[in-house]
Simulated scan of single mutants.
Amino acid sequence: MKARWDIFCSVVDNYGDIGVTWRLARQLVAEHDCAVRLWVDDLRAFERMCPQVDVQRAQQWQEGVDVRHWPAQWPVTAAADVVIAAFACQLPPDYMEAMAERERTPLWMNLDYLSAEDWVVGCHGLPSVKFKGVQKYFFFPGFRPGTGGLLREAGLLEQRQAFQQDAVAQRQFLQGLGVFAATGTRLMSLFAYENAGLASWLDVLAADGYATHLLVPEGRILGDVQRWLGVEGLTVGDVHQRGALTVQVLPFVRQEQYDRLLWCCDFNAVRGEDSFVRAQWAGRPLLWHIYRQDEDIHLDKLDAFLELYTEALSPAAKAAVVALWQAWNADGDMAHSWKVLLEHWPQLTAHAEKWCLEQGLQADLATVLVQFYLNWI
Rank of each mutant, 00 (worst) to 15 (best):
K354W: 13
N268C: 11
Q359A: 02
P145T: 08
F139R: 06
R144L: 10
R254I: 12
R48A: 15
W61E: 15
R152N: 03
D66L: 14
A116L: 03
L28N: 01
V179D: 08
W22Q: 04
Q73I: 13
K339V: 13
Q347E: 15
V216K: 10
W74Q: 11
F87L: 07
V76E: 15
D66V: 09
I221Y: 01
V36P: 04
L24G: 05
W338V: 04
I377G: 04
D81T: 07
L157E: 08
E358P: 01
Q27V: 06
D6M: 07
K301D: 00
V12C: 00
V277A: 01
G233W: 09
L374V: 11
A206T: 07
D94T: 15
M109V: 14
L262R: 02
V55C: 14
D303T: 09
I290A: 06
I84V: 14
G233M: 10
A316L: 14
V370T: 08
P315T: 06
R171S: 15
Q175N: 08
E153T: 12
R144Y: 12
A85V: 00
E218S: 12
G230H: 00
L222K: 13
L250V: 04
R171A: 15
A319Q: 15
L302D: 04
T235F: 06
W355Y: 12
A317G: 05
E295P: 07
A317F: 06
E273G: 00
C356D: 03
A335T: 14
A312Y: 00
Y95N: 08
I18Q: 03
W345C: 07
L369A: 05
Q90S: 13
Q241Y: 08
D166N: 14
G178K: 10
D208G: 10
W108A: 05
M96I: 02
R260W: 04
A244G: 07
M109D: 04
A86T: 01
E307C: 07
F191W: 05
G142I: 02
A116Q: 00
V121D: 02
A279F: 10
K132I: 00
G219L: 05
F276W: 11
G176M: 08
Q226H: 01
R171Y: 06
G142R: 02
V36D: 07
M334F: 10
G148S: 05
W5T: 01
R57A: 15
L299D: 10
Y258M: 15
